[in-house]
Simulated scan of single mutants.
Amino acid sequence: MKSLVNGSLEGYQIKIAKFKDEFIWHTHEKEDEFFLVISGRVDLHVKQNGKVEVFTLNDGEGLVVPQGIEHMPVSKGISNVLLFEPATTLNTGNVINEMTVEEIEKI
């Protein structure tokens, strides 16, 4: 996943990201995360109450993943996604690994 910051509003960042393939399961303990698919298709896998539910988002469709909910985006092919989240939000949430991006390129 590659993200670019396109602007900010009241401590939130507006990010444009390219999703491809399967990301990782992660949680944002204190932040809600809004996904809006600009083009492509993203399956958001969400774990709640011991069950996995998949929300399929196509062009123009969005979803808020509430704080504390474990989730994993999956995109077959490349999808362009707008994210709206607090500026402090790490892309990998509670997981720090080689996919973690601490400084996002600004456009």
Rank of each mutant, 00 (worst) to 15 (best):
I38Q: 13
L9F: 14
T100R: 00
V65Q: 03
M99I: 03
K18M: 09
V52E: 15
I96Y: 02
N80D: 13
V46S: 05
H45L: 13
K2V: 11
T100E: 08
T89C: 07
Q67F: 04
F19L: 15
S79H: 06
K18C: 04
I24P: 05
G11V: 10
T92R: 03
L4N: 11
G77P: 04
I104Y: 10
P73I: 04
E85A: 10
K76G: 14
I38G: 02
R41Y: 02
D59T: 12
K2I: 12
I16Y: 08
S79Y: 06
I14T: 11
N58C: 02
M72W: 03
V52Y: 06
T92S: 08
P73M: 07
I14F: 12
E105P: 01
T89Y: 05
N49V: 05
I107K: 14
S75G: 05
L9A: 10
F35G: 04
L63T: 04
E102F: 13
L44Y: 01
N58P: 00
I104L: 12
K20T: 12
N58T: 09
R41N: 11
V95Y: 01
K30V: 13
E61N: 07
R41F: 03
H45C: 09
S3M: 15
T88Y: 03
I78W: 06
E10L: 14
V95F: 01
I96T: 09
N91S: 09
E61I: 08
T56L: 07
T92Y: 01
V74T: 06
H26L: 06
G50E: 03
L82V: 15
K106H: 11
I96L: 06
H71A: 03
Q48G: 06
D21N: 15
V64Q: 04
E85K: 02
G60M: 11
H26A: 05
T27D: 08
S39R: 14
V46E: 12
L83P: 00
F19I: 08
V37F: 06
D59K: 15
E105W: 10
H45E: 10
E33Y: 01
N97H: 09
F84D: 00
G60S: 09
L90A: 04
